[in-house]
Design a protein around this nucleic acid. Structure first.
Ligand SMILES: [Mn+2]
Ligand SMILES: [Mn+2]
Ligand SMILES: [Zn+2]
Ligand SMILES: [Zn+2]
Lengths: 153, 153
DNA sequence: TTGTATATTTGCAACGATTACATTTTTTAT
DNA sequence: ATAAAAAATGTAATCGTTGCAAATATACAA
């Protein structure tokens, strides 16, 4: 069967193997900014033989073909975004959800950087989202006194 | 002897031990955005007994006291900045140097994230700086065909 | 001074995300 | 059908970081 992801990969000179199509479909459908484990745990339900190495290899290929942008919003793991347009991200330190932010880079950068060539724009904010369960008054702490998505002190 | 870093730590409720003062002095003096190894390799010349764990512990303490900001501009290691004012960074993918960028976030779209509280601003650009040796025409490649500071494809 | 509690440093083991690599499986071409 | 090429898989290795227990330094009372 020919899916949307299938033709998308073909258009970008990526051989649409079964695994590659499934991984791209996941990214396009969920639009969450998943890490490797999120992709793996979701897809292994219908692909029991799937290897994590395949996901690493596939995403590295997608990045090289500019179909995916890596997100360095976490300090210990990468996240991946099938939206390669320039935009920013907000990560809630309580619930962990990563939200897209529209950027106006023109009046954000005050420096000239003459002669510099910029290839990648990474704009990441962190804080608390507007969900009631993420507000200061009632945010969840674990046994270490940290919020859900913070690492232990 | 009482140095500038010494009193700076005292003012911020950090016990100015010998190692902590040396690490803070390094950050304030070099103003490069070093990773752990850069700090370690520099300081071990005058502190042969220095442990890398001490540097990790010290920087974690500095971050908690808001004396240092962690930079997630690399995907596999943290860098550290003793300038905690809001500003952005540019990293040259050829020479690796990280330059400060002044930011103007005031007229950023605030109604985009209603009810959100932002604690951290991370703005990182990547590209080629204006040094002649970093320009497209003459940039250095290693045996893997990558530039000096890129990882192997 | 001496002893004792506390703070800090050190060295090494353990952890986890990522990568290297050899093997197996699938696809393509002849 | 056969061989070659491409892709996927499993496992070991890498490396930045953290956990932890022992060693050292500091503070402070007796
Ligand atoms: Mn996004
Ligand atoms: Mn800086
Ligand atoms: Zn939230
Ligand atoms: Zn450069």
């Amino acid at each position: 069967m020919t899916t949307k992801a299938d033709t998308y990969l073909l258009e970008n000179n990526v051989n649409p193997s079964y695994q590659r199509v499934k991984i791209m479909e996941y990214l396009l459908r969920k639009k969450n900014h998943p890490n490797i484990d999120m992709i793996f745990n979701n897809l292994k339900k219908e692909m029991p033989k799937l290897s994590k190495t395949t996901i690493y290899n596939t995403l590295k290929l997608f990045i090289k073909r500019n179909l995916v942008s890596p997100l360095t919003i976490e300090d210990n793991m990468l996240r991946y975004d099938a939206d390669t347009k320039i935009h920013g991200h907000f990560k809630c330190i309580n619930c962990g959800i990563i939200t897209d932010i529209n950027l106006d880079l023109k009046n954000m950068n005050r420096d000239e950087l003459p002669g510099y060539t910029i290839f990648e724009h990474h704009v990441n904010f962190k804080g608390r989202c507007n969900k009631k369960s993420c507000n200061k008054k009632s945010f969840n702490k674990n046994k270490n006194g940290n919020t859900n998505w913070e690492k232990s002190a």
